[in-house]
Design a protein around this nucleic acid. Structure first.
Lengths: 145, 145
DNA sequence: ATAAACCCTAAAGTCAACTACAGAGTCAAG
DNA sequence: CTTGACTCTGTAGTTGACTTTAGGGTTTAT
């Protein structure tokens, strides 16, 4: 196993050096072995682990969730029931994401409606966007619901 | 105009007292007039303003954007061209939201695929979720793209 | 008259996920 | 043997939208 310094791992994984040290502090990476002079030494598995973290982040997992996923992966005891937990974490995240999408779609609906209603010309006085945010019931076009 | 203390406004608007003071510091609310002893005094318009803020927040506007919207509403000079700016802010926000939705839908797609692939039974060893996050090319079902 | 309930300020803390110092030691090349 | 690139630790700063704390005045009800 050829040992690499933190800078090499940073380049190979695309993760900044500071972030690698941060992940170690946060328990996403094990404490690295050191040279006599205190430099951290890594092997290829660390690069893979950092790529795992990057992919999981891209899917919306938080660092806390990723830490749990990695712990399951690391723990030999999780070779009995681990998959259920992994699936549970994934499904919770899926649920989160579906809620967020639903929220955003509600916002989108209202905003695109407002953007269409507003001519963009003239003063703010009877701007339908401002009026809606102000909670005015009787807009100039009260036919909507 | 019956003047109310901050506590009444908090109750009437559903905004915590501390948050009202925070909004004043941040320029979303004008500085309130005070009693001789330094208590802030508000009238109904503040309650309306706080409701405006709450609605705008619910639609995903940041406090900075809300401040801009309120400034346009307040500024008599904006009664010439203000509506264009209001519409621009709204459309930028709509754009943001559409991007966020697209991102989340990409995550959702991958995660729901993973959740279906994984039985949830057994150890973490060949869990398809873990394997995908680990970047393994040849899954047991490599037919997907 | 005193206690409960309310208000004030300024400053610090919270969360997430980094990012950026400052100050010092180490290693490879010329 | 010195310069420059690299690494170390520990601490502090960033963003957004608050929340909390400490320490003190004020008002209202009994």
């Amino acid at each position: 196993m050829p040992a690499q310094t933190i800078g090499h791992v940073a380049k190979a994984s695309g993760t900044p050096i500071e972030t690698i040290r941060f992940y170690e502090r946060e328990g996403l990476l094990p404490e690295a072995p050191r040279t006599m002079s205190g430099y951290r030494l890594y092997d290829e598995s660390t690069v893979k682990r950092l790529r795992f973290i990057a992919r999981a982040k891209a899917l919306g997992f938080t660092l806390a969730e990723i830490r749990d996923l990695l712990a399951l992966q690391d723990n030999p005891a999780s070779n009995k029931t681990g998959r259920a937990e992994v699936k549970a974490i994934t499904e919770r995240k899926l649920d989160d994401i579906e809620h967020k999408i639903a929220d955003l779609q509600r916002m989108q609906k209202v905003l695109s409606h407002l953007a269409h209603e507003c001519s963009g010309k003239g003063g703010v006085a009877h701007c339908p966007i401002i009026e809606t945010l102000s909670g005015i019931e009787d807009c100039t076009h009260p036919e909507h619901r």
